[in-house]
Design a binder for these strands. Structure first.
Lengths: 258, 258
DNA sequence: GGTGACTGTCCGAGCAGACCGGACATTGCC
DNA sequence: GGCAATGTCCGGTCTGCTCGGACAGTCACC
C-alpha cells in the first residue's frame, strides 16, 4: 500500500534546496499544486516533529531534527570514519582534492570532500557535499554501479538518464556497460572531462566486511596535471581504498592487482 | 488540524538512535504498539522517499536523504561557517575543547565539537555532535535560554524537566531564572560541574544580524584547570563569540562589557 | 494612521485512503 | 523437510485527511 501523505511529505522536503531554503505556505502550495490549507497542515505537522522549523514570520526552513538524524546515520556508517582519516592523509601528501561518495538509488551522493588549495575551489564548487549527481558521468558513479549486486544493476541502469554534460559524457547504455565491466575487472574507474571540461577523476571502491561496496573515493584533478600521470594517481587512490577496506575488516580475497 | 500520520512518522524516526540504528518491521511495530502491517506500510513509504534505506535482509536504517537535507540546512546556517572557523582558532591557540550548540525546543543540540588532544576525549564523549541535552545544566543551554524572546521563554521553562546529573545541577526554577538573568546581564554563563563531575564550561552567545541568538559557543574544561582561570577563559570565549557575531553583521549596539 | 493586498490559520462537511486482521510468501534454523 | 519467525499483500471499514471559504494578523503605500 502507498501512503500518499508520506509521498507528499517527500515532495515537500524536496522543495528545500540550496537555492531555496525557505518557503511560505502559499508558495509551497502553489509550487506543488496543493490547496493552501492542506500545505499549511503538512508544514505545521512537520514543524511539530522538528523536521522543519518556523521562522518568526511564519515561514518554514529545514529543522535541526534532520541534522540530528544525519549524525546518527553517519555515526553508524563505519566507512565514513575510516575514509575521512585516509582522505586527510591523501590531501596532505598529494595536495589534490578527494571525494567520498555513496550510491543512493540511481544517483551519486557526495558524503565528504577534502580539498587542498583554495585555488581549485572555484572549478569544483559545483560538486559539493550533500549534492546528488547522475551516476553515469562520474568516476565514483561508475565504480559504485560496477560493484552493485548483479541482479539490481539492470533496473538501476534502466532508470538512469544519460544526460550529456560535456562532449566526453557517456550517453549510450552499451558504452556505459562496457565501462562498468572494465571498472569491475580493473578495480578503478575514470572520468575524463565527462562532467566538467578540464577536470578528471579516478575512483576506487571501498569494500566492507561482507565484500559489498557501500562507498567509493576519488581524486579530482585538473586535466593538464592528470593525463601525464594517470597511472600514478590511479595507484594512489586504489591503495588508499584498499587500506580503508582492510580497516573495515575486508579480507582481500579478490583484491585486484594494479 | 493534526496530521496523525506525520506524528507517527516522527515517532518512527525517533526509534533510530545511536544505540539502535537498525529496525525490523515487527520490532518497530511492537515498540510503538502499532499493527505490523501499518508499520510495514510506513517504513516502506519512508524508504521510497529515501528517508530510510532497506538492508538486504529487509530491515531498515536511516537513509542518505537525511544527510542530503542536513547539508542544505547547514549550508544556509551562516553562523556555522563563521563559528567553525573561529573554533578552529580557539582550539589551536588554547588547546581546549569547544562546542557550538543551538536550542531546539527545550533542548540543546550540539552542532559542532572541536577538541584538541585525544586525552580529554574520553571524558567528554558523552556530549557529542548531534546529541540533545536538556538545556538547564549546560552553559550553552543557559545562554541560549537567556537570550530567547521574552514571550516564548515562560512556555519553554515550563516544559523543562530539571533532572539532576550531579550534585551541582540546578533543580529549581527560581535558581534557573536567576542564572538566566545573570547570563543575560553579563553576556556569558557557566556550568560548574553541573553535568559531569570534574568538567566546567563557559558559554557566550552568537548574535545574528537581527540581534537574535541562534547559537552559542563554549569552552569545556576540566575543573582543576578551569577554576584558577575562570575569568581568563570567559574573556576568550566572549571575545570569540563577539567576533563571530560581527562577521554575521551584528552591529554591537548592546555588546556587554567584560 | 488608515486602507488594501497578502499571508498564515482555523473550521467543518464529505469522502479518499489509511488502518489493521488475517492469509501468503520467504527465509533461516533445527 | 518441517517449524518458527519475519516481511508483504489484500480488502472492507471507518478514521482522519482534504480543501473551499472565512478570519486574523502584518506589511506597504498612500
Amino acid at each position: 500500500m502507498k501512503q500518499h501523505l508520506i509521498e507528499k511529505v517527500g515532495s515537500v522536503l524536496n522543495l528545500f534546496s540550496f537555492q531555496r531554503p525557505e518557503w511560505g505556505v502559499r508558495e509551497a502550495a502553489e509550487s506543488l499544486d496543493l490547496p493552501k490549507s492542506t500545505m499549511g497542515d503538512i508544514l505545521l505537522s512537520l514543524a511539530d516533529q522538528g523536521v522543519l522549523s518556523r521562522t518568526s514570520t511564519g515561514r518554514y526552513r529545514l529543522g535541526w531534527r534532520l541534522f540530528e538524524l544525519s549524525q546518527v546515520l553517519l555515526e553508524h556508517t563505519e566507512f565514513c570514519i575510516e575514509a575521512r582519516r585516509a582522505m586527510h592523509e591523501l590531501v596532505e601528501r598529494w595536495g589534490e582534492t578527494t571525494h567520498l561518495a555513496v550510491l543512493d538509488g540511481t544517483q551519486v551522493l557526495f558524503v565528504e570532500k577534502l580539498q587542498a588549495t583554495p585555488a581549485t575551489t572555484i572549478i569544483l564548487s559545483r560538486i559539493s557535499v550533500g549534492s546528488r549527481f547522475s551516476a553515469h558521468g562520474l568516476a565514483v558513479g561508475k565504480v559504485l554501479l560496477a560493484y552493485q549486486a548483479r541482479f539490481s544493476l539492470p533496473t538501476v541502469l534502466e532508470k538512469l538518464e544519460l544526460t550529456a554534460y560535456t562532449l566526453n559524457t557517456i550517453t549510450t547504455r552499451e558504452q556505459l556497460i562496457q565501462e562498468l565491466e572494465d571498472a569491475r575487472r580493473q578495480g578503478y574507474a575514470y572520468d575524463r572531462e565527462e562532467v566538467t571540461q578540464g577536470i578528471c577523476c579516478v575512483a576506487a571502491p571501498i569494500f566492507d566486511i561482507d565484500g559489498r561496496v557501500p562507498a567509493a573515493i576519488s581524486f579530482c584533478i585538473p586535466a593538464y596535471r592528470f593525463f601525464p600521470q594517470e597511472d600514478h594517481y590511479t595507484e594512489i587512490i586504489v591503495r588508499a581504498a584498499q587500506s580503508i577496506s582492510e580497516k573495515l575488516g575486508y579480507r582481500a580475497k579478490g583484491l585486484h592487482a594494479l
